[in-house]
């Protein structure tokens, strides 16, 4: 049955093509076209013809098509085609089926009997669920603010080509950043204990990489950020309990460096009128 059907289909297609050709070749239609061209030409030169003619023309246009179809030898099939073309539209409003939210569905389809008054969470932060943006409550604003701050602080992690999401390795980095921001002295990413040779190796490699980067940048004329110099000690060193306030106690002797002595002596004055007083002050200090 199927092959015959296919044949018929092809034939009907041919038939319709024939019909169309007939339409084009039909003398009546040719005449009409000629008239139309003339009319346009006339209207372009002079003024538009009365509109009444158009309305008369339209019903004239329809019958020739019918005639041509009747004339064709495939009229039976073409008619059949006309009757069989039925547009069946299965309107399915799947999208309109408002599904329960994920939480609600979870609660409803759980094994427990549903409680009488299930509370709905006000803010859902997950990307998949609907966030209620128009919620103007203080808590919601705070939450959004925090999210924005985090995004600003951590968005550079997303630049890496290997892991452009905030998960996996980047999540740990983000956690570390947050901890640093909260005042953590140590990084969770830094391994606390390792053999000294490893540590030295790692640091050396880091330095080497940094130097290479700077060198290449310099060769290419790229200006980089300032090199972070090793932190210089500023301020007072914390001495242990019982240690001398000045100098260094070793081998049963208090050793004073030149700097210490300079500090104790105070600034040396040039021989001037005020020398005596300056010396006096120095003496006083010495006496202490």
């Amino acid at each position: 049955m199927a092959p015959t059907l296919g044949k018929r289909k092809r034939r009907t297609a041919e038939a319709t093509e024939d019909n169309r050709e007939d339409d084009g070749e039909g003398s009546a239609s040719l005449e009409l076209d000629a008239q139309e061209i003339f009319r346009r030409h006339f209207e372009a030169q002079f003024k538009p013809l009365p509109v009444v003619q158009k309305t008369v023309k339209e019903p004239e246009e329809a019958p020739p098509e019918d005639e041509s179809e009747e004339d064709s030898e495939w009229d039976g099939i073409s008619e059949e085609e006309e009757t069989t073309v039925q547009v069946v539209e299965h309107v399915d409003a799947h999208s309109q089926i408002a599904a329960m939210s994920k939480e609600e569905l979870k609660v409803f389809m759980s094994s427990k009997p549903p409680t009488a008054h299930a509370k709905q969470p006000l803010i859902r932060n997950k990307a998949g669920t609907a966030t209620e943006d128009d919620d103007a409550s203080e808590a919601a604003n705070l939450k959004k603010d925090l999210a924005l701050q985090r995004l600003l602080a951590e968005s550079h992690l997303l630049d890496s080509a290997t892991n452009p999401t905030l998960s996996g390795n980047n999540r740990h980095k983000a956690t570390d950043l947050r901890l640093q921001a909260l005042g953590s002295k140590i990084s969770i990413l830094k391994q606390e204990k390792m053999p000294m040779s490893h540590r030295k190796g790692i640091i050396a490699k880091q330095n080497e990489r940094e130097e290479k980067r700077r060198k290449e940048a310099k060769e290419n004329g790229i200006i980089l950020e300032k090199a972070k110099s090793a932190k210089k000690f500023e301020g007072k060193r914390d001495r242990g309990v019982g240690a001398p306030a000045v100098g260094r106690f070793s081998g049963g002797t208090l050793k004073l460096s030149k700097k210490d002595i300079m500090e104790i002596e105070g600034p040396r004055r040039s021989a001037s009128g005020r020398g005596g007083r300056g010396g006096g002050r120095g003496r006083g200090k010495r006496g202490r």
Partner: peptide, 23 residues
């Protein structure tokens, strides 16, 4: 049974949080 019968027990002082009907 789960959504229409078991909730009726709540009125009798039977905790519905301790009832479960797993399919």
């Amino acid at each position: 049974v789960r959504t229409a019968i078991l909730p009726l027990y709540e009125k009798f002082g039977i905790l519905s949080s301790k009832l479960e009907l797993r399919v």
